[in-house]
Each structure stands twice: as structure tokens, then as C-alpha cells.
């Protein structure tokens, strides 16, 4: 149990790290919705008939589509590209915090991020290959189930989402397999990042391979990591439900809802840090990886005396 609780404690204890990640999230989300602000204010900024109405109402939701017919729709592509860059950059700092601990200094955080960004990006690209391979398992399973007349949420008729029940035994089992496959990939990625940080590895292909071997040698870790992901999702869903249950209709409630919404994000990001911490703990515990790798680390014979 402690293998799960300790990372969660660290994740939530690293509030400054989470705040940096939340700042990046705000930046990206803000850029997404910025184009809508003038349209939304023009439509609802002096709209007495919409006062006191929740989002899902005739006055607000029903009128949204015509509102954006002439433009002003949210921007998604460019902000998400920025997110990729930001996340790839910040992940180095997160690994530093999850592995080394100690006092938080923003400069050091950014310094570590900058130091590792290139290698982390390359590692990610290498591990995309692993993702492709790992996905073959759930894809193959879905095909097999389809042949057997059993359905997954990816192969059932679209109308099942409205008329039927998409979450049957088979589809949930398939989702579980998908979750484990994703956990394998994601944990390998996290471990690879930790290895690069800890051992200052330059060869990212080798780091990816070592990470995968380390993870495969510890199947329990994959399961625990999947459980950690499930706990994170469950916690976020619970908070999302709380956010959705809030009454709406005036500025104060809207701001309150926005605040409660941040707890959802905060929780999600804290679990992200916890995931990295889980990987760091795994590396520390197994001690499977040598401190030095490659030909440079091999013992060098002493030179003969002159």
C-alpha cells in the first residue's frame, strides 16, 4: 500500500510543482478560449433574460451555435501545440522534484527543465514506438472479440452510447487491458525520464530500452501504476461531479464553480507528479540500472608507469 501512498503524498506535497503545471494549463486553456471572449461578452454581457440561467438552458446553450456562425470559435490547434512544447519542457523539472526532493526553487526547476528538454523529447519519440507495440494487444483483443461477436466500446454500434449500455463485462475487461497497456507505456516513459535525470544519460534509445526492461521485470509495478491511474481518474471524476452539481446563474456562483474546477485540475496534476514519483521510487528500489552505462563507464586500466 505504501508503494501507492508515498507517491501520492509526494504528489500533493509538491504544491509548488503542481502550481507551475497549473500555470501552464491556464496559459494553454486561456489561449484556447481567448477568441471567444468578445463574442461571449457581446452576447451575454448585457443579457438580462439570461441572468440566473444555467449553461444548459434555452437562453445560453441553445443560442450558442448561431453565436459562433460568424467566427470567434475557440482555438484549439495552436494552444495544444504550445502545450506539447511546455509539457516537454516542464517534465524535466517534475522529474527533478520527484527524484531529488529538497527545497523548491523556481530557477532550479526551470534549469533542470532546460537541461533535460532535448533528451526528454527524444526519449518520448522513442517510446512512441513502444506505444504502438503496446496498443497491438488491445487492438488485437478487440478484433478477436469482434470475431467472437463480443463488443468493446470501440467496436459497438455508435447508437449503443444512447440506446444501450456500452459498459458490459467484455467492454470493461477490454478497457482494463487497454489501461494496463497504457500503464506499461507510460511507466516506461516515466522510468526513462528518471534514468536520464539520475544517470545523466545521453543516449535516449538506450534509456528507453533500459526503462522498458526495468518495467517488464516488475509486472506488479505496472499493475500498481495502473491502479494509481485509476485512483487519479476516480478522484478527478468525483471532483468533477461536485463541480457539476454546483448551482449556476450569477457571477459569484460562476466564480465559485471556476474555483472548484481548479481543484479538479489540481488533483489531476498532483497525480501526474505522483506518477513520476512512483517511477523514481521504482528505479531507486530495484537498483537494476547501473550508475554508469556505456563504454565510457567501463573500468579503465591504469597506465603503465613510465
Amino acid at each position: 500500500m505504501n508503494r501507492l501512498l508515498e507517491p501520492i503524498r509526494v504528489g500533493f506535497g509538491e504544491w509548488r510543482t503542481v502550481a507551475v503545471l497549473l500555470w501552464a494549463n491556464w496559459l494553454v486553456a486561456g489561449l484556447m478560449v481567448a477568441p471567444t471572449v468578445p463574442t461571449v461578452w457581446a452576447a451575454f454581457g448585457h443579457a438580462p433574460l439570461a441572468v440566473g440561467k444555467p449553461l444548459v438552458s434555452s437562453e445560453l446553450l441553445i443560442g450558442l451555435r448561431p453565436l459562433f456562425v460568424g467566427g470567434g470559435t475557440p482555438s484549439v490547434g495552436a494552444p495544444l501545440l504550445l502545450l506539447v512544447v511546455l509539457q516537454t519542457f516542464l517534465v524535466g523539472g517534475v522529474v527533478w522534484r520527484a527524484s531529488a526532493g529538497g527545497p523548491f526553487r523556481l530557477g532550479a526547476f526551470l534549469g533542470q527543465s532546460g537541461r533535460l528538454v532535448g533528451r526528454n523529447a527524444r526519449l518520448y519519440l522513442w517510446l512512441l514506438l513502444l506505444l504502438g507495440v503496446a496498443m497491438l494487444v488491445p487492438v488485437g483483443l478487440a478484433a478477436l472479440l469482434h470475431v467472437l461477436g463480443l463488443r468493446t466500446i470501440f467496436t459497438m454500434p455508435g447508437e449503443t452510447w444512447i440506446f444501450g449500455s456500452p459498459f458490459g463485462v467484455t467492454s470493461v475487461l477490454h478497457l482494463a487491458v487497454l489501461g494496463v497497456a497504457l500503464a506499461l507505456w507510460r511507466l516506461s516513459l516515466e522510468v526513462g525520464r528518471v534514468l536520464i535525470f539520475r544517470d545523466d544519460l545521453r543516449t535516449t534509445r538506450r534509456a528507453a530500452w533500459r526503462a522498458l526492461r526495468l518495467v517488464l521485470r516488475s509486472p506488479l509495478s505496472i499493475v500498481l501504476y495502473a491502479v494509481l491511474g485509476a485512483v487519479a481518474t476516480g478522484a478527478a471524476l468525483l471532483l468533477m461531479r461536485g463541480r457539476a452539481m454546483l448551482p449556476e446563474g450569477n457571477a459569484g456562483l460562476a466564480l465559485l464553480a471556476l474555483g472548484v474546477g481548479q481543484t479538479v485540475l489540481w488533483t489531476r496534476l498532483a497525480f501526474q507528479v505522483a506518477g513520476t514519483r512512483f517511477a523514481a521510487a521504482l528505479v531507486q528500489r530495484t537498483d537494476a540500472a547501473p550508475r554508469h552505462v556505456g563504454h565510457l563507464e567501463e573500468p579503465v586500466e591504469a597506465a603503465p608507469p613510465v
Binding site: 494549463n25 478560449v33 441572468v51 444555467p54 475557440p74 456562483l253 460562476a254 466564480l255 464553480a257 479538479v264
Partner: peptide, 19 residues
């Protein structure tokens, strides 16, 4: 109120997407 309700939902949805 209405503008913040709509804008707040947009921002929240964008945050969840980004996360």
C-alpha cells in the same frame, strides 16, 4: 453572470482538454 457562466464553462472544458 451569464457571460461568466458561459466563459467559465469554456475555460473549464479547455483546461480539462489540456490536462
Amino acid at each position: 453572470g451569464p457571460a461568466l457562466t458561459v466563459g467559465g464553462w469554456f475555460l473549464y472544458a479547455a483546461q480539462l482538454l489540456a490536462a
